[in-house]
């Protein structure tokens, strides 16, 4: 006997993501799902972001790693609320993992919540966690062809940060080619060049964040 099912495989995840999203909205949180390969500079970006947003928007972080609390230790030095999730064998964060972390986060004291996903260019793109936007980092040491090799992640992202541009002269990374490739996969993607080492572009990234916050809530920053 045949039984018609027609159920989306990610439906259970998406349902929990919608609940997370409602909770974020009610606390006036702008939520970003930050994705990249390992070592692209996610944690260092957050260190720089904490400094750039100080006195303007209150940053909070949920960080996912397969093992260790090293990222949490790094970020807590900046006086941020940080929750570390260890995923064990899982290569991505899903909506349920985020839901389980939320009781440990004081959302009332956060304007911008960044969910730092597990370093991986594949699986994180499949799972909504309740974010407003997916954003990603591509670092110049990874190669300018990555948007074509991992199209779903670039397709799903609203913003691409191209990091480590201070290293451009030491690599064969072609910045124009990388941007053209990203736009082939996603013509609407916004792109900002940054270096977390020299600080170049960090103010542009902070302006992008402030703009998103203002568009979502109609106010500039914390009351």
């Amino acid at each position: 006997m045949k039984i018609n099912v027609m159920t989306d495989i990610l439906e259970a995840n998406d349902r929990i993501a919608a609940v997370n999203r409602q909770l974020f909205d009610s606390h006036k949180n702008l939520v970003l799902n930050l994705m990249s390969s390992p070592g692209a500079g996610k944690t260092m970006l957050l260190e720089k972001t904490a400094q750039a947003l100080r006195g303007k928007l209150r940053l909070g972080v949920i960080v996912g790693d397969v093992e260790t609390a090293r990222d949490k230790e790094r970020l807590e030095k900046y006086d941020l609320p940080v929750v570390q999730l260890n995923t064990g064998s899982a290569c991505h964060l899903d909506a349920n993992m985020i839901a389980s972390a939320l009781p440990h986060v004081d959302l009332t004291n956060i304007d911008v919540l960044v969910i730092e996903n597990v370093g991986n260019l594949v699986c994180p793109a499949e799972f909504r966690v309740g974010e407003d936007f997916k954003i990603m980092i591509l670092s110049v040491t990874e190669g300018d062809e990555k948007p074509l090799k991992y199209p779903l992640m670039f397709r799903e992202s609203s913003l691409l940060l191209i990091n480590k541009i201070d290293l451009l002269k030491y690599t064969n990374f072609n910045l124009d080619e990388a941007k053209a490739n990203a736009r082939k996969v996603n013509p609407n993607i916004e792109i900002v060049d940054i270096s977390c080492v020299t600080g170049e572009g960090i103010s542009d990234w902070a302006a992008w964040l402030s703009g998103c916050y203002k568009r979502k809530f109609g106010t500039n920053s914390l009351a």
Partner: peptide, 10 residues
Amino acid sequence: ELRVRDIEVE
């Protein structure tokens, strides 16, 4: 797409 269309059971 990513969905279970139908199942065959007995």
